[in-house]
Each structure stands twice: as structure tokens, then as C-alpha cells.
């Protein structure tokens, strides 16, 4: 497993999981930062957290455990912003 940068594991709180709209929101936030962002679902292969298709190809279900990893100068800020988005449930349910 890659373990550079900063990372955090969290549970998807929204009922429907990381489907199209939440993935779009995630990518939008991730792209505000210079840091590289990686996402894995239930210890699977990491995908690019700035790529819509990498996220929707994983389509984590509601309740799934995901790991977000950020690498770069503003990695801490990127990780905090993305965790806040996930914990907010993407504004649904």
C-alpha cells in the first residue's frame, strides 16, 4: 500500500454512497488543491481522487469504508476539506 502524505479512513455516511453526484462534488473539491489525492474503497486499489471516472468506477456503497490520501504542499488542507465533504453526507439524506 502507498503511504506517503497524509491519509484518513472514514465511513461513507450518506445512504447511497459514492455515486455520480457525490463523486462530482469530491472531484471539484479535490481540484481546488495542488496536492495529489488518492481514494481507495475497502482496501482496494487506489484511484485518482481528481478523476470522476476513477471514483465512479469504484462507486463505494453507502456505509463503505474509504481511505483518502493526499500528497503535496497543501495535503493537510486537502484532506481536511475532503473529509468534511464526506462527513457532511454530500448534502443528501
Amino acid at each position: 500500500m502507498n503511504d506517503g502524505g497524509v491519509s484518513r479512513e472514514l465511513i461513507l455516511r450518506n445512504r447511497h454512497g459514492l455515486h455520480v453526484r457525490p463523486s462530482g462534488q469530491f472531484v471539484t473539491v479535490a481540484n481546488r488543491f495542488r496536492a495529489e489525492v488518492y481514494v481507495s474503497v475497502e482496501d482496494g486499489e487506489e484511484g485518482n481522487g481528481k478523476s470522476m471516472l476513477d471514483l465512479t468506477a469504484r462507486a463505494a456503497a453507502g456505509g463503505a469504508r474509504i481511505r483518502i490520501r493526499a500528497v503535496g504542499p497543501d495535503a493537510e488542507e486537502a484532506l481536511a476539506a475532503l473529509c468534511e465533504l464526506v462527513d457532511s453526507g454530500f448534502g443528501e439524506d
Binding site: T56, A57, A59
Partner: peptide, 8 residues
């Protein structure tokens, strides 16, 4: 979700 994964 399975269809979304497949299509993506």
C-alpha cells in the same frame, strides 16, 4: 452501483 462501476 454495479452498473455505474461497469460503465465507468
Amino acid at each position: 452501483l454495479a452498473v455505474l462501476r461497469y460503465v465507468s
